[in-house]
Design a protein around this nucleic acid. Sequence first.
DNA 1: TGTGCGGATTAAATCGTTTAGCATGGATGA
DNA 2: TCATCCATGCTAAACGATTTAATCCGCACA
Lengths: 351, 351
Amino acid sequence: MDETSSASVGKVTLQRLAMELGLSTATVSLALRDSPVVAEGTRLRVQEIARERGYVANRGAASLRTARTNIIGVGLHDIINPSFTELLAALEDALSTSGKTILLGVGQEDVKRQTRTLGTLAEYRPDAFIVSPAAGSGIEDLKALATSGIAVVQVTREVEGSGFDFAGSDDEAGVALAVDHLVALGHRRIGMIGGFDAVSTGRRRLAGYKKGLAAHGLTYDPALWVPGRGTREAGRAAVEQLLALEEPPTGAVCFNDLCAFGALMGIQAAGLTAGVDFSIVGYDDIAEAALWHPALTTVFTRIPEYGAAAAGLALARIADPTRPVERVVLEPRLVKRASAGPMKPVKRRPQ
Amino acid sequence: MDETSSASVGKVTLQRLAMELGLSTATVSLALRDSPVVAEGTRLRVQEIARERGYVANRGAASLRTARTNIIGVGLHDIINPSFTELLAALEDALSTSGKTILLGVGQEDVKRQTRTLGTLAEYRPDAFIVSPAAGSGIEDLKALATSGIAVVQVTREVEGSGFDFAGSDDEAGVALAVDHLVALGHRRIGMIGGFDAVSTGRRRLAGYKKGLAAHGLTYDPALWVPGRGTREAGRAAVEQLLALEEPPTGAVCFNDLCAFGALMGIQAAGLTAGVDFSIVGYDDIAEAALWHPALTTVFTRIPEYGAAAAGLALARIADPTRPVERVVLEPRLVKRASAGPMKPVKRRPQ
DNA sequence: TGTGCGGATTAAATCGTTTAGCATGGATGA
DNA sequence: TCATCCATGCTAAACGATTTAATCCGCACA
């Protein structure tokens, strides 16, 4: 309507509203936030004119005074990976309903860059950080965040001994579940694709693999673990490597769904059928997993749930910085689909 | 090392540094920003102690003074959809290298919620907004953003007549390309899966479909267009609907890759083979497209490029708010893979 | 009439920066 | 010797909100 009213006079601030209303900024500020100390009539009058003038509060200014920004710094090392996208979506959902807004930083799996990125985020004085640390992050890298007194919550991955809250999945139990499943299907030589030492999830999933084997009296054969990043490319290369072994495994568990997809591709490219000639179990159960051909048997790590939990931990710590450190570790669940099937003897590859 | 030095005395601000150094805040401020007016020695001394004390600038305070936040408000309607994830990643990349940080808002394809979300973002006074408007957004919905004098750039989708910069792909040409390809493969009855009126991309891709048909003297049959959202579920339902027609098409173009995946699933579920019995062309060429089985023939809309372009437009407009409105419209490219193959007569489904 | 009370409003300090304009003092040039 | 100039640093006023303590103004009560 009267677009002019706001354009004609420059920025509309609390002060300007106060002047127009013949009130003090104190009253206007209080009125806008529905404080009970200001008279009903005044409050309505203030809110009315604020709307009419198109007043938009300046949170930067407010934060300067209140030392609260309602910003949450979210530091992920990668956002293309669907599991982190799903995490981001869960965080966004939970945080936005609590009136928090996400300031996004992407670390690119590089500690140097992560440090720079989080440092920049810190300048905006977020009320909390929710972080999935880049591979190789040390305690010091995270601690630097906390000096400013900002709450830090780790999600998915954690830096052991950092003493920060954490929300994630029980990775050891999860991979053990996957191994159990393959064993139940009759497999005895079981590989592991992906995972590496520089990251807590890598270490724990590998531990789960070994534990799963041990639980069934199977011995861990180092040749059957192909370490690597959790990408489709790495998964594909890894499965090719496994298939080329003298005595190849008949199935494998994967570090995540992404490299499981790569493995499925590799299997198919080798002229084999996943779930028949070679069994694959993924990890995470991202949306894509159900749609593959064959549909991916995988372990559901409950990303949306621990995402929401991480948001909750952050809010709780903001509210009470002295509360005891809390770890939320969800139990993963096996999702049986078609990419893992009964063991059948693998013919040595014709050559 | 001396973690205490920062913890012992509370927040370390410019003022505190100035006191410790026996300088004025003005000098310290200038020194930290490498201003040439402060003496070399002083500058080094200041920066040294700032580092030592773990000083972190408060950008909120600075922004209050400078009216520049280095924040870019990014409003997407959905972040789970991989095409928007790829866009977000491209934006993040381009913006972070320019020292800008993303404040994220997700509209959930709901104008009401989008208005609320963007309103919240506006309170942080971003230097610019980069927005992919939710379906059904009107000019007024966007204009509200601009009142505050914040630059607005539209990406992917646009609200016609809004008068804001835009970066995206030539959707009409893109879908026409897809139709061309199917026609070249011998198809004559060609469907369109997905797309709806409430969004510029929907309208233009449909227009491209019709134009593509017309270019080859084919008539548009409304029964062959199954409108819907760009989801796997919608794609699957749509292809089932097409296959159930009296006289089904032999191929279809899709609104995006996501619903193309759904279509591939539907085709397979019907016992047919995509690329042989029924041809599918997707739209966007997200990473997943190359990995499907069969690999998805699709149209590459160059998301990373127009994402970078959108970031560039935002930066340019921040630098010069009076520059003429600019539209960056990239030419899409056909990516031939396996999901679209030569036409073969489709047998009426046995019943 | 004075006192006290409670509801409504306000003055003023404050948060942590930036920046225009001014002060200082030594070097320079005429 | 005096006026200029330059390099350096400082003073003080913003920026736009929030919040504490104070003030104002009836009005009831003793």
